[in-house]
Design a protein around this nucleic acid. Structure first.
Length: 871
DNA sequence: CTGCATCAGGTGTCTTTGAACCCA
DNA sequence: TTGGGTTCTTTGACACCTGATGCA
C-alpha cells in the first residue's frame, strides 16, 4: 500500500510538473518582454477567483475545474478557450494530448496569441524542477502495439533484403578472384583439406585480420558490390564490407561459407528498449532502418585505436585487456570469466540436472567451446575499431551515449562449414574482423555488452537465408518474447531457407588447380546432392532444435512464467495443471521445475463436449474450482438443503488424459434426445445425436409441430444482449428419417405461401384501383353537376394523387397495369369532356367470378369503362 | 547499476440459457 | 386464452500485462 500511495503522490507531482512545464513553454514563447506572472495574476483578479495563482502542492486539476466554473460564459473564459484549446475541451484530454508534446505546441502559442493564452491560465514557475528528466509514461494502446509490430516486421524484411544483397555480392567472381590474388600461396592449400576443421582455418583468418580493417561504421549510400570492391582495394571499410569480404574469400577458396548478420531490428513492443532503436540516434533523420544500425555513432571520438584484438594475435591484447579488467567487472583479460554471482552455482547444478533429465548429452564440442571461451576477448574488446581515417571535422551528429554503447556490437560475421568437425560436420563461427573462431558462445554476451539485443541471427547463402539464432543464444526464453510470431517468420523464411539449403549443401569439391595465378573453381554436382542437401539442412535444424534441450534452467521464478520449455507450478493458471508430475528437471528457489509439455489445460465437461470429447467413466476431476457466482449465492440462500446447489458451487475440471471420443445419444423411434432444457446444443456437427439432422430453415419448427414430428431447437451459441448472454437458436434438430418429409413440406408450404401472398397482393391492387376509379367517377359526376367549366377539369389527365394509388405497385406488372389504366382514364376523361354535358350510362359488358364474389366490367357508350368488384 | 520479487491497476477475454409486454 | 414476437438494457470475473517499488 505504501508503494501505491507513493505512486499517487508522484502523480500529483507530475501534474504540478505539467503546469510548470507549460509555464516553461509560456516563458519560451512569450518573448515580448511580458512578465511571467503578472498577466496570470491579473486574470485571476478579473475572475474574482482565488484559483488564480497556482499554489505549489495544490492539485492543478482542481484549479482548472474552478477556473472553468468561474469563467463559464465569460469573455476571459472564451479567450482561454479560443487561444489555448477549446473551453469545452476536457482537461483530461489536455493533460494527455497537449502537455506531453511540448515542442509541437510551443510554437502554437507564439505571437499575439500567447498573451491571451497566458491570460487564461494560472501557473507558477518552479525553477528547481528539472524538466529534462520529466518522464511521462503512457500505456501502449492496441494500436500502438500493432504499429510497432508492423514496423518491426518491415524492418526485419528490409534487413533480410540487405543481407541477401550482401550475400550476392560475396559471390562476385571478380572480388573473389582479387581476394585470391592477395592470399599467400601457402594459405591456398587450405582448399585441399578434405576434412576441414576450425583449427585449420586459423592461419587464413589471421592473415585476413591483419590485412583488412574496419574504419567506418556506416557505409555511404552506394551500390554494395561497388563499396565492397572499394573496401577490397583500400583494405579497409565498414563492418559489413569487411565481413562480406571474408565470406567472399572463403567462398573463393572453395569453402562453404555463409554471411551471417545479427539483425538489429526495432523493438517488437512499443516503447520497449527505446535506447536500442537503431535509428534513434540519427537525430530524427528518419533513415535509420535502411542503414546500418550503428549509423548514429559515425563521429565518435576519432582517436586512432588499434583494431579488434584477435584471439589469434594475442600479443596485441594485453593493454586493452588491462583496461577491460578495470572497466568490466564481469570480464577478465581474454578470459571473460563470469562473475560468480548468487545463483550461479544453482544455475550450474540445474543445468546438469536438466541435461540428465532430458537425456541429452552435451556434445564434446559444446564442452570444448566452453573451454575455448576463455580465449576470447570481451565484448568491449570486440567493440574496438579503427577510426583514424575519419575526418576530425566531420559534420555528422555527435554520438549519443546510447548510440555509443552500441559500438562494436558483433553485427556481421561468417560461418564456414567444417566437414572435419564432428562426424557429420559443423558450421563454425568465423569472425575474421576480430580474428575470432568458434566464438558463437560469445556473441550473445558481446551483443548485450554493446546494448544490442540478439533476437535474429540470420545466415545468408545462395541468395537465401536461414535463421540460426539458436546457435548464438544460450537463453532462448529471453529472446523469444522479443521476436515476431513464429508462423509469420517461418513463412517469410521458408523460400529463403530452401535457397540457402541448396547453396550450402551437397557439392563435392575437387582439388583445384592454380594455373597462372588464376583460381579455377571446379565444383562437380554429385548425383547424391539432393540427399545431402536434405540431410545437411535437416541435421543443422536438428542441431539448432536440440540446443533448446540443454538450455539452462532460469534461476529466477519470473522467467518460468512464459518459458517455452520449463514451468513452475506457481505460474499455472487456474485452468492448468502439471500432469504427469515427473520428471522434475530441477529446482528454482526450492520449487520443482517441470517440463512445459507437462502443463495440461483443464476444461469442464461441457467444454470438452463442444470439442467432441467426453470424460471417461469413473474419472475424478483433475481440479475443482469454487465458483463464486451471484446466481449460485442466491440459489444457496433459497435452497440450502439441495445437493444440486452444492455441486453447482464448484467447477469440475478435467484434463485431456481423462477423455475419450464423445459417445452421442441415439435417436430412437423418431424421438430426438434432448438436454435438460429440451434442446440440442449444436456447437458443431460433432455434437449432433446419432440419427438426427440439423435443419437451418426459418420457422421450420412450426412445420414440424404441424406435422407432429418430434424436434428440438438447435442452440448454436450465445450472444451478449441486454446485459446478459442469451442463447442463439438456429433451426431445429429432427430425426434423419423426417428430413425429406420436412424439406418437401417446407418447399410446398413455401410455394403455397408465395402463391397466397401473390394473390393477396393482387386483390389489394385491384381493391385500391377500384377505390381510385370510384373517386374519379364521383369527381366527374360532381364536375358535371356543379363545376363543369372549372378551369382545371376539362381535357386534363387525371393524375394519381390518391394516397392508396401509389402503394403496392412495386412490381413491374403492377406498374404496367397502372400505366394502361392511366391511359385509359386519360382517354375516357378527355373523351367525356369533349361531350361536355354527357352523362355516362354504364352497361354491364363483362362479369367474371372471383373467389369471394365477382368482377363486373361496365362500359359507357362514350367508351369510358369501369370495373366493379362485387362481394 | 542491475536484476529480481512483489504488488496493484489497466486491459482484454471469456462467460453464457429472461422477463415483461403486446398482439393476433 | 395462448403462443409468438418484440423490447428492455447494456456483466463481471479473471487472466494477463505492465509499471512502480524495494531489496540484494
Amino acid at each position: 500500500m505504501r508503494g501505491r500511495r507513493d505512486s499517487k503522490k508522484q502523480k500529483v507531482s507530475e501534474d504540478q510538473v505539467h503546469v510548470s512545464g507549460d509555464a516553461e513553454k509560456l516563458q519560451r514563447t512569450n518573448q515580448s518582454g511580458l512578465s511571467q506572472k503578472i498577466p496570470v495574476k491579473r486574470h485571476a483578479a478579473s475572475l474574482g477567483k482565488s484559483c488564480g495563482v497556482a499554489h505549489s502542492g495544490v492539485n492543478r486539476k482542481q484549479d482548472v475545474a474552478e477556473h472553468e466554473e468561474g469563467s463559464e460564459g465569460d469573455t476571459p473564459g472564451e479567450q482561454y478557450g479560443g487561444n489555448g484549446f477549446p473551453i469545452s475541451m476536457n482537461m483530461e484530454e489536455i493533460n494527455d494530448s497537449d502537455w506531453e508534446d511540448g515542442s509541437a505546441h510551443a510554437s502554437k502559442y507564439k505571437g499575439s496569441d500567447s498573451e491571451a493564452f497566458i491570460n487564461g491560465i494560472t501557473v507558477e514557475l518552479n525553477p528547481l524542477q528539472d524538466f529534462s528528466h520529466r518522464k511521462i509514461k503512457r500505456r501502449a494502446s492496441t494500436e500502438d502495439k500493432e504499429v510497432a509490430e508492423l514496423v518491426h516486421k518491415v524492418h526485419l524484411l528490409c534487413l533480410l533484403a540487405r543481407g541477401r544483397i550482401i550475400d550476392k555480392a560475396c559471390d562476385d567472381p571478380l572480388i573473389q578472384a582479387s581476394l585470391l590474388s592477395l592470399v599467400p600461396a601457402q594459405l591456398l592449400k587450405l582448399s585441399e583439406i578434405q576434412k576441414l576443421t576450425g583449427v585449420s582455418l586459423h592461419p587464413l583468418i589471421s592473415w585476413f585480420h591483419s590485412h583488412f580493417k574496419v574504419t567506418r561504421l556506416s557505409s555511404e549510400e552506394k551500390f554494395f558490390p561497388s563499396a565492397m570492391a572499394q573496401a577490397l582495394e583500400a583494405k579497409h571499410g565498414t563492418l559489413e564490407e569487411i565481413a562480406a569480404l571474408s565470406v567472399a574469400l572463403f567462398r573463393a577458396m572453395n569453402l562453404t561459407a555463409r554471411f551471417v548478420s545479427l539483425l538489429d531490428v526495432v523493438p517488437l513492443k512499443p516503447g520497449v528498449d527505446k535506447g536500442d532503436l537503431p535509428f534513434k540516434g540519427a537525430q530524427g533523420k528518419a533513415k535509420g532502418i535502411f542503414k546500418n544500425p550503428t549509423v548514429m555513432i559515425d563521429s565518435f571520438n576519432p582517436k586512432p585505436v588499434s583494431p579488434a584484438q584477435p584471439t589469434l594475435c594475442s600479443d596485441k591484447n594485453n593493454e586493452d585487456s588491462k583496461k577491460l579488467k578495470s572497466s568490466n567487472a564481469t570480464n577478465e583479460i581474454n578470459g571473460f570469466q563470469e562473475l560468480k554471482r548468487k545463483g550461479d552455482a544453482e544455475y550450474e547444478m540445474q543445468m546438469e540436472m536438466a541435461l540428465s533429465a532430458t537425456a541429452f548429452e552435451v556434445s564434446e564440442d559444446a564442452v570444448a567451446a566452453k573451454a575455448t571461451n576463455d580465449s576470447f576477448p570481451s565484448p568491449t574488446t570486440l567493440g574496438r575499431i579503427t577510426t583514424g581515417l575519419l575526418p576530425s571535422s566531420s559534420s555528422q551528429p555527435v554520438a549519443t551515449a546510447v548510440g555509443a554503447s552500441k559500438i562494436g556490437a558483433p553485427l556481421h560475421w561468417a560461418e564456414v562449414y567444417c566437414s572435419g568437425e564432428n562426424s557429420i560436420g559443423k558450421w563454425v563461427h568465423v569472425d575474421a574482423i576480430n580474428g575470432l573462431l568458434g566464438g558463437e558462445e560469445r556473441v550473445e554476451a558481446a551483443a548485450a555488452a554493446c546494448k544490442t539485443s540478439l533476437r535474429y541471427v540470420v545466415a545468408f547463402a545462395g541468395y537465401g537465408a536461414k535463421d540460426v539464432t539458436r546457435r548464438y543464444c544460450r537463453r532462448w526464453y529471453r529472446i523469444a518474447p522479443h521476436r515476431v510470431n513464429t508462423p509469420w517468420w517461418d513463412e517469410v523464411l521458408a523460400p529463403l531457407k530452401e535457397l540457402e539449403s541448396r547453396a550450402t549443401g551437397g557439392s563435392i569439391k575437387l582439388p583445384f588447380t592454380n594455373d597462372s595465378g588464376l583460381h579455377q573453381e571446379m565444383v562437380v554436382e554429385s548425383s547424391m546432392k539432393s540427399e545431402f542437401v536434405a540431410t545437411g539442412s535437416i541435421l543443422e535444424d536438428m542441431e539448432l532444435e536440440t540446443r533448446a534441450f540443454y538450455e539452462p534452467l532460469p534461476t529466477n521464478q519470473q522467467a518460468y512464467r512464459n518459458h517455452p520449455l520449463y514451468a513452475l507450478e506457481r505460474w499455472l493458471t487456474k485452468y492448468q495443471v502439471i500432469h504427469p508430475k515427473n520428471p522434475i528437471l530441477g529446482f528454482c528457489n526450492g520449487f520443482p521445475v517441470y517440463r512445459r509439455s507437462c502443463v495440461q489445460i483443464l476444461k469442464t465437461k461441457e467444454k470438452w463436449m463442444r470439442e467432441g470429447l467426453q470424460v471417461r467413466h469413473n474419472e475424478f476431476p483433475a481440479k475443482v474450482l469454487k465458483r463464486i457466482d451471484k446466481s449460485v449465492k442466491e440459489q444457496l440462500h433459497e435452497d440450502d438443503d439441495s445437493e444440486e446447489t452444492n455441486s453447482g458451487g464448484t467447477i469440475e475440471l478435467f484434463g485431456k488424459w481423462q477423455l475419450e471420443p464423445l459417445s452421442l445419444l441415439h435417436a430412437v423411434n423418431g424421438i430426438v434426445p434432448k438436454n435438460d432444457r429440451g434442446q440440442v446444443d449444436v456447437w458443431s456437427e460433432k455434437c449432433l445425436p446419432h440419427g438426427t439432422v440439423h435443419l437451418k430453415l426459418p420457422r421450420i419448427f412450426a412445420l414440424a409441430k404441424k406435422l407432429e414430428i418430434d424436434y428440438a431447437p438447435a442452440m448454436v451459441g450465445f450472444e451478449f444482449r441486454n446485459g446478459r448472454s442469451v442463447p442463439v437458436y438456429d433451426g431445429i434438430v429432427v430425426c434423419s428419417e423426417f428430413k425429406d418429409i420436412l424439406l418437401e413440406a417446407y418447399a410446398e408450404e413455401k410455394g403455397r405461401k408465395e402463391t397466397e401472398e401473390r394473390k393477396r397482393n393482387e386483390r389489394e391492387v385491384i381493391s385500391r384501383w377500384y377505390q381510385l376509379l370510384s373517386s374519379i367517377i364521383t369527381r366527374q359526376r360532381l364536375n358535371n353537376c356543379y363545376g363543369s367549366r372549372q378551369p382545371n377539369s376539362p381535357g386534363k389527365v387525371v393524375t394519381l394523387t390518391s394516397g392508396a394509388s401509389n402503394e403496392n405497385l412495386s412490381t413491374s406488372q403492377q406498374h404496367v397495369e397502372k400505366m394502361e389504366l392511366e391511359q385509359h382514364i386519360a382517354v375516357s376523361v378527355s373523351h367525356s369532356t369533349e361531350e361536355h354535358d354527357h352523362e355516362h350510362m354504364f352497361v354491364t359488358v363483362k362479369k367474371c367470378s372471383l373467389e369471394n364474389g365477382s368482377l363486373v366490367t361496365k362500359r359507357c357508350q362514350c367508351g369510358f369503362s369501369v370495373q366493379v368488384e362485387e362481394i
